[in-house]
Amino acid sequence: MFELFNIGIDEENVGFMIESNPNIRDMSSEEILDRVELLNQIGCDERKIRNILIGNPWYLDRCISDVVASINKLNELGLTRIDLMIDDNPMLLNVDEFEINDFVNSKLEEGYDMDEIIDMIDENSNVIVE
């Protein structure tokens, strides 16, 4: 949990994060650092990482391979700068690959083309779960 302080999240926000996701209290340093490292790899700097974790404390107990699969899916669709997308919608990290597929497929069925669907996600990534 001290890792959260190390990346600059203040005590008040760490408290809010734990209230929302009490599992954080039982997480090992390794588990937290693995998830912080993944955000680093996506291109997030410390400022973004702080914003993301404060906004979405549930990300910390997500399974890393699930998150990687979703990010790969977004890349595959042609979406770029996923770091910015996540910074603006930290909840995007809770979306699974199959949810992205389901969203894309449902929009294709509604008659949208791929470019329009990608734009929808790009404008407001929350549409995937809305």
Partner: peptide, 10 residues
């Protein structure tokens, strides 16, 4: 309401 899920700095 997603506003509540964004950090103040952001």
């Amino acid at each position: 309401p997603v506003l509540f899920g964004l950090s103040f700095d952001n």
